[in-house]
Design a protein around this nucleic acid. Sequence first.
DNA 1: TTATTTTTTGGACATATGTCCTATTCAAGT
DNA 2: ACTTGAATAGGACATATGTCCAAAAAATAA
Lengths: 224, 224
Amino acid sequence: MMNIMDALTRLQWNHLFSNETLESSSVVTYASGTMLCSNDQHIESLFVVLEGRVKIYTLSEEGKLRLLRLKAAPTLIGDIEYASGRNVLHTVEAVGPVTCLRIPFEALRRYNRTVEFTEHLLRGVSEKLFIEANASSNHLMSTLEERLAGYLISLSESGNELFQAEMSQLKRKEVAEWLGTSYRHLNRTLQAFVDEGLVKRTRKEVIILNSERLKERANGMFYE
Amino acid sequence: MMNIMDALTRLQWNHLFSNETLESSSVVTYASGTMLCSNDQHIESLFVVLEGRVKIYTLSEEGKLRLLRLKAAPTLIGDIEYASGRNVLHTVEAVGPVTCLRIPFEALRRYNRTVEFTEHLLRGVSEKLFIEANASSNHLMSTLEERLAGYLISLSESGNELFQAEMSQLKRKEVAEWLGTSYRHLNRTLQAFVDEGLVKRTRKEVIILNSERLKERANGMFYE
DNA sequence: TTATTTTTTGGACATATGTCCTATTCAAGT
DNA sequence: ACTTGAATAGGACATATGTCCAAAAAATAA
């Protein structure tokens, strides 16, 4: 069993929550594949992801998946919903075991309306808005070729550890989802890169052969 | 010259700002077409739009325009940037004369770190995130036909005053930008609706003839 | 090893949408 | 009424991308 205070201290988040708040909270562990919350549902707690990774996506009514990102601890889940009072915006699913601190909104409302905490939420939500806005812009304004090139470059460049750690483990099919395209089209575009000698493709991996030209192809698209 | 306190009281925003903050602020009026802030620029003040309308969009490097929305007073501009410390996310331009209260970030940092104000920002930013996320989802998952039908329906339905007031005055070209398509394609799609007898089109207007079938075509897409 | 099932790959075709350009219509000036 | 210029409409074509399916390869079972 993990010690909450230690975990929060490590993140330097210990000053954010009052004692009363923490007393109303609990540590929860989720098995891989569990949904912490899902699209359009009601939610009543804030989750502080202390350990593990989560996958964030939306599932439209027609069942189309839109993978938004993978995110490693620490992250807040439910902040947007707490702030807006709306139902869940994005589904969040555990990828591997995940440990969270679960804090009921009620406790936050009662015992945690401090400037520090609210500012923390505000910063976090703003960051998310930036990411969302950029992703959606990128998406709208570029072809898969550019996005794929950008993705490959972003993975290969050092100094991009966070992105690497989070996005390198996607399977081909998930890459397609994340890039917002069909598996078919991803393959087609990848093949085009192969034909031009920009990358080499084995059954399981893609190896970059000419990162210079690939970067040109990315045309300014890159992630994080 | 407008009285700030009156204006803020009318919006019930008077309790949000301290006296010191207000003393550091100024009322500014912008002529139609002025940019309150533009994409990727540095910004140092929060704008409380008290009167008038603004147009919010992004201009990509290649000069492509992405119209996000029209928004009538009251609105906050610069809240996201204040919260995140980043450069401007979306360009904001006055549509008609606009009166704002301009509050330097510095003043907010010094004299306005209250729970009320921060929570107000937080709510606002979360709302914006929801809108952005939905818009981008819609955009990604539907064809122009659906979006256009949704737009027309949303304009025609009463009980949608806000949307109507803000979006009905767009010119055909702007509608195309807002729907994220080319003028050409907007015409093509409109023509398809005409051919099916769903709408009638004069040079300046579009009149809905069969809102039932149009609504089906919208396939669940509608705005605000 | 051979047979069967699953995964991966790529062909063929349809469709949404963009670009470019010409024809048409409307408005404004002389 | 003509002329000119802007706004509007629409034809023709290119392209990105989706869908559906069959071939090929790999993994698994027998």
